[in-house]
C-alpha cells in the first residue's frame, strides 16, 4: 500500500540480514568507559585529522595590523614630542590616546572586525587591551550597571593587570637582590 511504495519499506522486507555496508566481522560496540589507552589512540587520530591554522597568512595579517596600529601610535608620539613633551613622559599620554581610540572603535562595532582579520595583531597592542575592557562592559550591560558593566569589565583586562603588576614587582625585587649581592648598587 502506501508504505510499500517507499524504498525504505521495501528494503525493510529483507529484515534481519539487511547488513548493508556492515561487515560480519564488525567489532561489537563496547559498553564500558574508554580506557586511557583507547583515549590516547583516539586523540592521536583526532590530532592528525585536525586542520592546521594558516599560520603564515595569520602572521602576515597580524604583522600588518599590529604594524599599522603602532604606526598610528608613532604619529601620536611624534606629535607629543613636537609640542615639547619629554620622551620619558610621553608613555602615559600615548597609552591614553591609543586606549581611547580602541574604546571608540569597539563602541561603534569596528574593533571586532579588525580583530577577526588581524588576530593578535589587534589584540596585543594596548588598543586590544581597551577592547577587552569595553567589549564585556557593553555586552553585560543587560545584567545591570553594577554587577554587569562594573563587575565584568575586567574579565580579560583584570588578569593582564594582575600578572603585569605581580611580575613587575617580583622582577624589581629580584633585580634589587642581584644588585645587593653583586654590590653594584
Amino acid at each position: 500500500m502506501g508504505a510499500s511504495k517507499g524504498a525504505g519499506a521495501a528494503r525493510n522486507g529483507s529484515g534481519k540480514n539487511a547488513g548493508g555496508g556492515r561487515s560480519k566481522t564488525s567489532r561489537p560496540a563496547s559498553s564500558r568507559p574508554a580506557s586511557p589507552k583507547e583515549q590516547k589512540k583516539y586523540q592521536k587520530i583526532a590530532q592528525q585529522a585536525r586542520p592546521r591554522p594558516p599560520v603564515l597568512i595569520n602572521c602576515i595579517k597580524a604583522f600588518l595590523t599590529g604594524g599599522v596600529i603602532c604606526l598610528v601610535g608613532q604619529g601620536v608620539l611624534n606629535y607629543f614630542i613636537r609640542i615639547g613633551v619629554k620622551p620619558p613622559d610621553s608613555g602615559g599620554p600615548l597609552a591614553g590616546v591609543m586606549v581611547t581610540l580602541g574604546a571608540l572603535l569597539t563602541g561603534i562595532g569596528v574593533y571586532d572586525v579588525i580583530g577577526k582579520f588581524g588576530g593578535m595583531g589587534s589584540a596585543l597592542p594596548i588598543t586590544g587591551f581597551a577592547n577587552s575592557i569595553v567589549s564585556p562592559a557593553m555586552e553585560f550591560k543587560r545584567e545591570g550597571y553594577v554587577l554587569g558593566v562594573g563587575a565584568r569589565m575586567f574579565q580579560v583586562a583584570g588578569p593582564v593587570i594582575v600578572y603585569g603588576l605581580v611580575t613587575s614587582v617580583v622582577v624589581v625585587l629580584i633585580k634589587m637582590a642581584v644588585m645587593a649581592l653583586t654590590g653594584k648598587s
Binding site: 602615559g92 599620554p93 597609552a95 591614553g96 591609543m98 586606549v99 581611547t100 580602541g102 574604546a103 571608540l104 569597539t106 563602541g107 561603534i108 562595532g109 594596548i126 587591551f129 581597551a130 575592557i133 569595553v134 562592559a137 557593553m138 550591560k141 550597571y145 558593566v149 569589565m153 583586562a157 593587570i161
Partner: peptide, 18 residues
Amino acid sequence: IGISAAVVFGYLMAILFT
C-alpha cells in the same frame, strides 16, 4: 592614564552602545 582611560571610556561606551 591608560587604565583610567580604558575604564572611563569602557563605561561611557557601555552607556552609548549595544
